[in-house]
């Protein structure tokens, strides 16, 4: 019954993963504007204050960002803005 055991282990991992993502998503849902703001002031403030957006990004935002980085792993827009390939390769460099 090895297969059944492996299958059950995999199922539990999957369920735990889904529960984690669900909790994460619920915890970072936008709550809507909390206080009424003067429009000129609101223009100068971030979406956390004006729309109640969560300060911590939700799973959707993180997933989108990961996908964006994976799609273009070699961009070089300057010394301080380089793609994954440059920063991830640092530990692999021999010289």
């Amino acid at each position: 019954m090895q297969l059944a055991l492996a299958l059950r282990a995999a199922m539990i991992s999957l369920i735990l993963f889904v529960v984690l993502i669900a909790v994460w998503h619920i915890g970072t849902r936008p709550i809507g504007p909390t206080i009424k703001l003067d429009p000129e002031y609101a223009k100068l403030m971030g979406s956390t204050v004006t729309q109640g957006k969560s300060a911590m990004p939700g799973p959707g935002d993180v997933g989108a960002k990961i996908w964006q980085h994976l799609q273009d792993p070699f961009y070089d827009r300057g010394t301080n803005e380089r793609a994954l390939a440059f920063s991830s390769s640092i530990p692999l460099r021999v010289c």
Partner: peptide, 18 residues
């Protein structure tokens, strides 16, 4: 907008005032 508020000097102060 954050950098602009600093450099131009028209900014939100956190207590509801511009």
């Amino acid at each position: 907008t954050v950098v602009e508020q600093v450099l131009t000097g028209t900014f939100a102060d956190g207590l509801g005032n511009v």
